[in-house]
Simulated assay, not measured.
Amino acid sequence: MNTFDIDTQALAPTGTLRAAINIGNPILAGLDPATGQARGVSVDLAQRLAGLLGLDLRLVTYDTAGKSVEGVTRDEADFGFFAIDPKRGEQIAFTTPYVLIEGSYLVRQDSPLTDNAQVDQAGRTVVVGRASAYDLFLSRDLKHASIVRAPTSPAVVSTFLEMGADVAAGVRQQLEMGALEFGGLRLLDGHFMLIRQALGISRSRDPGLAEGLTRFVEDAKASGFVAHALARHGIQGAEVAPTE
């Protein structure tokens, strides 16, 4: 048994550790334009886990969080990197969080909206990435505004502009990039949710695996590995989750 008391046969029954990587969240992962290979904080963590467990690693990439969750529940991957959410928790067992990310709203410069609390009004339309953490949260939280789902999180800003919608919702940094690309847009101050990013495995797996992966996550935070990974990839606006 290893330092984290993780049963490697139960975690990686094929003999290779298969990690689901969502390349649609730029805070966590993306494709290297030079090589086409996945890179980012979640990739670094997957590599660290495989190395500490003495396993070969295979990255299974998806372009949305929803597809990544489905990949783990369908046993296409052994674990993944997800925002903690009660709906996903029906199928996924989560570790403690390793990173906290802001979910923000984007509007046009001439929008009358100046505060997050003003968004949930009848007649307002909010665009969000389908099956993302923001979609799941806002589907529960918004009582009056309507939701339109873009096919992926990176497509939220373009969909918002094409539809003439009132608000775009998503990762603050992704929305900031959209504002720079298209112009004439601004973010509302603060955030409407704070996303807790964690590792997750299918609930059909041994329950002890989530506990072992939690020990791995806590070690990665306490040792400074997560902080160094954020710095190495130039990630701003995300912070290391407190140790638990």
Rank of each mutant, 00 (worst) to 15 (best):
Y105F: 14
E76R: 14
L142P: 02
P151H: 07
A238I: 04
S202M: 05
A77H: 02
E176D: 10
S223Y: 10
T64N: 13
S42Q: 15
A238H: 05
H228S: 12
R149T: 09
L53E: 12
R203S: 07
V43Q: 07
T64S: 15
L57I: 14
T214M: 08
P26V: 15
A229N: 08
T3V: 02
R130I: 00
L113G: 07
T152G: 04
L230G: 03
A133C: 04
D135Q: 00
G212L: 04
F82D: 06
P112Q: 09
T159S: 15
Q174C: 04
V148Y: 01
R172N: 00
T16L: 09
G51M: 09
R196P: 02
E70P: 00
F160V: 05
V127G: 02
S132F: 01
E176L: 13
I235A: 11
K67F: 08
A10R: 14
R215K: 13
G24E: 04
L180S: 07
Y105D: 00
N25D: 15
M163F: 06
G123V: 02
P154L: 09
A93F: 06
Y98H: 13
R172M: 00
L106S: 03
S202K: 06
A46V: 15
T95S: 13
A198Y: 04
R232M: 00
A12D: 11
P242I: 02
G208R: 12
K87P: 00
G51P: 09
L136A: 14
L55N: 11
T96Q: 07
L194N: 11
L230P: 08
G129T: 02
A10K: 14
V126A: 10
T16Y: 07
G80Q: 06
V99L: 13
L113I: 15
G71H: 03
A131I: 00
R205P: 09
S111W: 03
A131H: 01
M163C: 04
V148I: 07
G170I: 03
L180K: 05
Q174I: 00
D219N: 07
E211D: 12
L136T: 02
T35H: 12
L106E: 03
R130D: 05
I235L: 09
